[in-house]
Each structure stands twice: as C-alpha cells, then as structure tokens.
C-alpha cells in the first residue's frame, strides 16, 4: 500500500485510503478488537485462579490476537511487531520458566516442582509456584501458536493458484 498523493487536502485523505484499500472496514474494526482480545487473554490468564482459565487458554487467545493482526495487516507487519527470533526465545523461555520453578524447588531442598518449599508458608509457596508455572505456560503456548502460524504462513507456494 503506497502512501496517497501528498498534494491531497486533508479532507480527501481518508477517501483516498478507502479507494486504494478495500479492507478498510476490517482494518478499523480489528484495530479496535485486537487490544481487546489481548486484554481478554490476560484476563483469562490472571483470573484462572478463581474461575476457568489459565495459561493454556490465555496463550491461545493472545496468539489469536497476533494472528488476527497478521491476517489483516500482513505477515510482514506482524513479523515486525513480533519478530521470529523473539518467538523462538519465547518458546524456550516458557519451558525454562516452568522448569526453572522446578529447579528452584530442587535448590530449596524439595522435590521437582514442589511449590510448597518456595516460601516459608506452604500455601503461599503453592501460590508463587503456580503463578510462575502459568506464566511459563502462557509464554510457551503464545509463542508456539504464533510460531506455527508463521511457519505455515511464510511458506511461499511455488505453483500458481490455478494448480491448487
């Protein structure tokens, strides 16, 4: 999408965009929706303690917001916002956060993933543990879903559309 003619007056500009871009409605609505989806993802994540929810579901919802962004604004734009290296780091970081909690509980003298030893009070130890674990799950699931989308999306079919 190239920029409209700079000589246009300001009142003409939106029309120029609309004429060049048939998806303006989609763009406007998804610009409104994407932050909401992301916030809803975080809500599902942090409310997982009190109701149905948690890292898995929240991760998928968060990834859905990025995937919607990629669908509407193009894969390249999405890759600028969430570069593939970041996604790759995120996948590993999620696993490491999860496993790191286990390692900390090892170091504190408990069994692997025994959250009770994370704090003097076993109950708040369980609390800390599950928060760290769910963050790891959120991180890993979001990154993996986006990575799968990137992996399939960035494959260029080497044959034309008629062949399909």
């Amino acid at each position: 999408m190239s920029a409209p003619d700079p000589k246009m007056t300001e009142s003409e500009l939106p029309h120029a965009y609309a004429a060049r871009d048939p998806h303006v409605l989609l763009r406007v609505i998804s610009k409104f929706l994407i932050p909401l989806i992301a916030i809803f993802g975080f809500y599902v994540h942090f409310h997982g303690e009190y109701s149905a929810g948690g890292g898995f579901q929240a991760g998928v919802i968060l990834a859905a917001s990025v995937i919607l962004y990629a669908l509407i604004f193009g894969l390249d734009e999405a890759k600028r916002a969430f570069p593939p290296w970041l996604i790759r780091v995120g996948m590993s970081l999620g696993v490491l956060l999860y496993g790191g909690t286990g390692v900390v509980s090892f170091l504190k003298g408990g069994e692997f993933l025994n959250y009770s030893v994370l704090n003097e009070n076993a109950i708040s130890g369980q609390h800390y543990g599950i928060i760290a674990i769910e963050l790891g799950v959120l991180c890993a699931v979001t990154s993996v879903m986006i990575a799968i989308f990137y992996a399939f999306g960035s494959r260029q079919p080497e044959t034309s559309d008629e062949d399909w």
């Binding site: 790759r88 780091v89 996948m91 590993s92 696993v95 490491l96 496993g99 790191g100 286990g102 390692v103 090892f106 069994e111 692997f112």
Partner: peptide, 17 residues
C-alpha cells in the same frame, strides 16, 4: 529420577536457542 527427566527437557529448550 526427577533429575533424569528434568535435565534433558530443560536443556532441550536451551539447546534450541
């Protein structure tokens, strides 16, 4: 036993990076 399965799992994540 916990160490046996945790170590390769975590190191797989590190090795991927």
């Amino acid at each position: 036993p916990g160490f046996l399965m945790a170590l390769p799992l975590l190191m797989a994540a590190v090795t991927a990076l």
